[in-house]
């Protein structure tokens, strides 16, 4: 087994509230890992602890307990960040810099120089489709363009891991599609991706593995197809099945089903969202009962 790209072990993060001795547990004993070359999505509603976990992974916050590692290096070690490209939610960069200057700035921060940096900037501008705007200052960029230059900035030093916070929040459907394609391209190039989102649909299109976080705790985790399956249910998805065949199967269930029942029939739909709401509401119920 190779070293995981991200390894979060028993992470707990507690914030003090005001001066009184009150605390809010933002992340509670969270563990998960992002394997090298994989796209991992951490999903949860706003305030569920995704951003906090991400900031701890990035070294912007210190864990109260537990630890996080990037390719085996502790997040608190500055060297861990050689391997990370990060795109924050709604990124704003220095408005006074042009697109090319922005990439140059971040490249230099990563110790890149000269020809190598110049070539890389050209490459990335092409990748995110901003060659035409490279000399324009970011003050004049649209939201989608900012998101793309942000992604290019994240990739500047050829990191092995890319961390994306709500990568498509507030981006129009076309821009959103572009970003999704870019993520798939990264995966193809063998780059690990760790993303946070509350937009489930996008996640399920690109993620290999998904973790569902709610109120700081990991609720479900696993391969997407496993997660959306319901334990005592089985779905058959048929292609080009004739209505006779379907009728035959239905009859078979009735006659030899041994208690089995047909719950649903139709074209497949996302169930992720439904499940998500189920988890949230059962949690609420539990709390009310206590």
């Amino acid at each position: 087994m190779s070293v995981p790209a991200v390894e979060v072990t028993n992470l707990t993060k507690v914030f003090p509230v005001s001066l009184r001795k009150e605390y809010v547990v933002a992340v509670d004993n969270l563990s998960f890992q992002v394997n090298a070359g994989e796209v991992y999505g951490l999903i949860g509603p706003n305030g569920s602890g995704k951003s906090t976990s991400m900031k701890v992974v990035l070294g912007l916050m210190a864990p109260t307990e537990g630890e996080t590692r990037i390719f085996g290096v502790s997040s608190r070690d500055v060297r861990a960040r050689n391997d990370i490209g990060f795109l924050p939610e709604n990124p704003y960069f220095y408005k006074h810099l042009s697109g090319a200057e922005t990439l140059k700035f971040y490249g230099k921060l990563c110790g890149m120089r000269g020809r190598d940096l110049k070539d890389r900037i050209g490459e990335l501008l092409e990748l995110v489709g901003l060659e035409h705007a490279k000399d324009r200052r970011l003050g004049g960029y649209s939201k989608g363009m900012l998101q793309r230059i942000g992604l290019a900035q994240a990739l500047i030093q050829r990191p092995r891991l890319v961390i994306l916070d709500e990568p498509t929040a507030g981006v129009d459907p076309v821009g959103s599609r572009q970003i999704r394609d870019l993520i798939l391209k990264l995966k193809e190039d063998g780059i690990s991706v760790f993303l946070c989102s509350h937009l489930l649909e996008q996640v399920q299109e690109v993620c290999d593995e998904v973790g569902i976080i709610f109120e700081g705790r990991m609720r479900r985790e696993g391969k997407l197809e496993d997660l959306v399956s319901i334990g005592n249910q089985t779905s058959l998805v048929l292609e080009n099945a004739s209505s006779e065949l379907v009728d035959k199967i239905e009859r078979l269930i009735e006659t030899e089903g041994d208690g089995a029942e047909l719950v649903e029939k139709g074209n497949p739909r996302t169930t992720l969202e439904r499940m998500f709401i189920r988890i949230a509401s059962s949690e609420k119920q539990e709390k009310e009962e206590n």
Binding site: I84, F86, P91, F93, Y106
Partner: peptide
């Protein structure tokens, strides 16, 4: 405020 700090500190910058 602009969150530029996040992108800078998530690079290998002390």
């Amino acid at each position: 405020e602009d969150r530029t700090l996040y992108t800078i500190l998530s690079k290998p910058v002390l």
